[in-house]
Design a protein around this nucleic acid. Structure first.
Length: 490
RNA sequence: CGGGGUGUAGCGUAGCCCGGUCAUCGCGUCUGCUUUGGGAGCAGAAGGUCGCAAGUUCGAAUCUUGCCACCCCGACCA
């Protein structure tokens, strides 16, 4: 482990790449655009999965699994859906290899060509709706509330670890309902869950809103999203929830008989968050010393570093630490006692800072004499001496404080980097400074496109909470009734 | 797919312009002793098809050509 991370202020993306590697979250793999998620990184993802999965279950969803491969013909059934994904699909054409006749390794057996080529799922709407068709006949079969945890593949031209990889892990919820209203409610309920997760677990404040037509999911009638701001001022879409209308029901002929005996098309939703959230988590809180993890998602919440000379002192300290470990664990706090003799305290301090462990306790003979322990916070980098009596309570309160503090910090950052702009000149200046711009927009795709071409900024969302307000489009001067959020994004 | 860059020990690098004891240095690893309150010190040791292939040459990490991989910037996207 070499020391030192690039500075965020000097090269943000290099800082990010190095941090991901040095904190042992993930690394690039032999396959271009794909990543190896390492144990430390994966355990954060597992914590995210657990929290989200619990929330899905609480709202009546169950998990299931649909296949990785999709018949090519399925993709072409929903016109806009094909258009959205066709350019980035991996295609399976053969099912067998054979030894190269020239003796060099293996080749694809030309004899073993598939009759119908298979697409590696970029998302599963098509297989799932093709299945729902057989599951739904009556209104009694509805709603269907299913989620799956899976990997998907989108053949991206440019990839970035966690933020955009060719293969990524995610969950995709796919629900079917009898009424438009119910499907719409589901769509917004799931968005609320994502927002709650982002804010309460990840400590990342998000803005809820809907996407413009340009940014909408291919195949959806409406796409809702949560948008977060990263420390470089760029926006990151952290989750999406789609109201599919009857688009997929019509494409796959999914009908049900309602109470009065009429045949109706089913209403659908789909919603997902991915390992991209790992990128959001990293970029929202971390600093030049390494990761800063919210306690609720930290694989190790507290690390105890003994400071000692010789076996005997370590013995004494270990004895004192034992009940603390036990009590913290009893409170559901994950704690590690690092008595590894191979590394010195200073090295450990730096290492756990790099890995974002929220609380560090250092305990040596000097502390024992005074019945105290030194407690250091990762988020503020402050240290203080705390009495050993009732230290477990103290830690448990501190973890909550840290969770709140990093959320507050992120919210302040967003506030300081969000600006209302009212003229095109102002827009051009502010967009270079980064952050979110609240501006009036005339509602047309043409204007949105032009602004994107000129500034690389897109409309991240039309926020739900934006107030009705008369104004004129920042670009075209046409009338507008509410502000939207413009930003450069990941 | 365009434009730029990089490829030398597990990791990070010097050397490349101007071919010849040049394979450099740091981290890490191993051994021993001393250390332990912010990335330890000393002594010793191991570790390399210089991305791959062909060519030029008496001689190639260095020059030429081709290929491969990765990174950055664009087009595309969660």
């Amino acid at each position: 482990m070499s020391k030192g991370l690039p500075k965020r202020s000097e090269n943000y993306s290099e800082w990010y790449n190095e941090l991901v590697k040095k904190a042992d979250l993930a690394e690039n793999s032999a396959v271009r655009g794909c990543m190896v998620i390492k144990p430390y990184g994966f355990s954060i993802w597992e914590k995210m999965q657990r929290a989200l999965d619990d929330m899905f279950k609480e709202t009546g969803h169950t998990n299931a699994y649909f296949p990785l491969f999709i018949p090519k013909s399925f993709l072409s059934k929903e016109a806009s859906h094909v258009e959205g994904f066709a350019k980035e699909c991996a295609v399976v054409t053969h099912y067998r290899l054979k030894n190269d006749p020239d003796g060099k390794g293996v080749i694809v057996d030309p004899e073993a060509k598939l009759e119908e080529e298979l697409i590696v799922r970029p998302t599963s709407e098509t297989v799932i709706w093709n299945t729902y068709k057989t599951w739904v006949q009556s209104h009694r079969d509805l709603p269907i509330l299913i989620n799956q945890w899976a990997n998907v593949v989108r053949w991206e031209m440019r990839t970035r670890i966690f933020l955009r990889t060719a293969e990524f892990l995610w969950q995709e919820g796919h629900t079917a309902h009898a009424t438009r209203k119910e499907a719409e409610e589901e769509t917004s309920q799931m968005l609320d869950i994502y927002a709650k997760f982002a804010e309460e677990w990840m400590a990342v404040p998000v803005i809820k809103g809907s996407k413009t037509a340009n940014e909408r999911f291919a195949g959806a009638e409406d796409t809702l999203c949560i948008e977060a701001m990263m420390q470089d001022g760029k926006a990151l879409q952290a989750g999406t929830s789609h109201f599919l209308g009857q688009n997929f029901a019509k494409a796959f002929d999914v009908k049900f008989q309602d109470k009065s005996g009429n045949l109706e098309y089913v209403w659908g939703t789909s919603w997902g968050v991915s390992t991209r959230l790992m990128g959001a988590l990293i970029m929202a809180h971390s600093d030049d010393l390494g990761l800063v993890l919210p306690p609720k998602l930290a694989p190790i919440q507290v690390v105890i570093v003994p400071i000692y000379k010789g076996e005997e002192q370590l013995e004494v300290i270990s004895e004192k630490v034992k009940p603390i470990l036990k009590n913290l664990k009893a409170k559901g706090i994950s704690v590690k006692f690092d008595d590894d003799d191979q590394a010195r305290p200073g090295w450990k301090f730096a290492e756990y800072e790099l890995k974002g462990v929220p609380v560090r306790m250092a305990i040596g003979m000097r502390d024992l004499e005074n019945n105290v322990v030194e407690i250091a916070r990762r988020d503020t980098l402050t240290k203080e001496s705390v009495s050993l009596d009732g230290v477990e309570e103290y830690i448990s309160d501190l973890l909550e404080k840290i969770q709140c503090n990093i959320y507050d910090k992120a919210i302040d950052f967003r506030k300081n980097n969000t600006h209302e702009v009212n003229s095109w000149d102002e827009f051009l200046v502010k967009i270079e400074e980064g952050g979110f711009l609240l501006a009036h927009w005339d509602g047309t795709s043409e204007t949105e496109e032009k602004i994107k071409d000129l500034t690389k900024a897109t409309i991240r969302c039309i926020p739900f909470d934006s107030k009705e307000e008369e104004g004129v489009c920042v670009f075209s001067g046409k009338p507008s009734s509410r502000r939207v959020i413009f930003a450069r994004s990941y």
